[in-house]
């Protein structure tokens, strides 16, 4: 569905994308994560044919993103990161114009979507709050049920209830076989939906793995409650546990990888209680940056 091969984009001396390789299959929900300025939006702009690559290539549906952009966009729904719409536009006339350009009757689906997003179809963009504009942008991206959805920071400005509506819409889209390219600087956002995540930093992909594999690599917080402070003091820290904090009878540790050796070790200790948290993807995400930063 989407393929970039050694994709490079330079702005003069600044290298925004550096030999970026991505391959996204039909029906994937792909999370594209990175901090501000990492190259997420540049990648998307190349995919949409707004920027010409300086090197390498990008294709969607097997078509070159620069040369065949209008054809590609027939089947793409796009929500820009910094969405700005015409001040005179209302949801109703926006759907009308998009329908005319796409040569499709979109009124019914548009109505269904603006109802779901609780959007008044008669309010002009100039009177809308940031969140309402974002909702209109989402309606316009989703309305023609495209084969590929490219969403750049789609939850920005949405309240938690509307975020849930968006996640439900995207779940339905994925169930219909649509492909989702979800760009965000927050891993917790893509965790809800995506089955694969790529992390970009300084224009390079530093990780591209299924979310399950990333979870396996992420540390879990383990809280061990010993019988008493004396027992906690006597216990030897095993190599596979990284102690973060000791507080009387309690240890707060990080554990990366499988659990059986931890369970075996705990069986021989005077432990009164244990809490094992979910994989902490956010800290793993941060580590990718720190590691790269150290190397640099």
């Amino acid at each position: 569905m989407i393929e970039t091969i050694n994709l490079t984009k330079k702005y003069g001396e600044l290298v925004a994308l550096n030999n970026l390789n991505l391959s996204i299959n039909d029906g994937d929900c792909f999370g594209f994560i990175g901090p501000n300025g990492a190259g997420k939006t540049t990648t998307i702009r190349v995919l949409l044919g707004l920027l010409r690559p300086s090197g390498g290539g990008a294709s969607i549906f097997g078509l070159d993103c620069w040369k065949r952009s209008p054809r590609i966009k027939r089947d793409v729904g796009y929500l820009p990161g910094d969405l700005r719409l015409y001040p005179w536009m209302t949801a109703r006339n926006a759907i009308g114009i998009v329908g005319q350009v796409r040569k499709r009757g979109l009124a019914e689906r548009g109505r269904e979507l603006w109802d779901r997003f609780e959007l008044d179809p008669e309010v002009r963009v100039r009177q809308m709050s940031r969140g309402m504009r974002q909702k209109l942008g989402l309606v316009l991206a989703l309305v023609h049920e495209p084969k590929l959805l490219i969403l750049d920071e789609p939850t920005a400005g949405l309240d938690p209830l509307m975020q849930d509506v968006l996640y439900r819409c995207l779940d339905e889209a994925i169930a219909r076989g649509q492909t989702v390219f979800f760009s965000s600087h927050r891993l917790s956002e893509v965790e809800h939906l995506c089955d694969r995540v790529a992390i970009i930093r300084d224009g390079r992909i530093v990780a591209d793995e299924p979310l399950e594999t990333l979870r396996g690599r992420a540390a879990r917080e383990v809280k061990l409650e010993f019988a008493d402070a004396e027992a906690a003091g006597r216990a030897e820290v095993p190599a596979f546990l990284k102690i973060r904090e000791r507080r009387g009878a309690q240890w707060v540790c990080d554990r990366t990888g499988e659990m059986p050796d931890l369970i075996r070790w705990m069986a021989g200790q005077p432990i009164a209680d244990v809490t094992i948290g979910p994989p902490d993807l956010e800290s793993l995400f941060r580590r990718f940056y720190e590691r790269e930063g150290d190397a640099g």
Binding site: L50, P70, R71, K73, V76, R84, L85, V98, G137, L140
Partner: peptide, 17 residues
């Protein structure tokens, strides 16, 4: 400068059009 070019060019139209 209005920032609306992203919306305009996300439609399936060529720049020539």
């Amino acid at each position: 400068s209005g920032g609306t070019i992203d919306f305009l060019l996300s439609l399936p139209v060529s720049r020539r059009t």
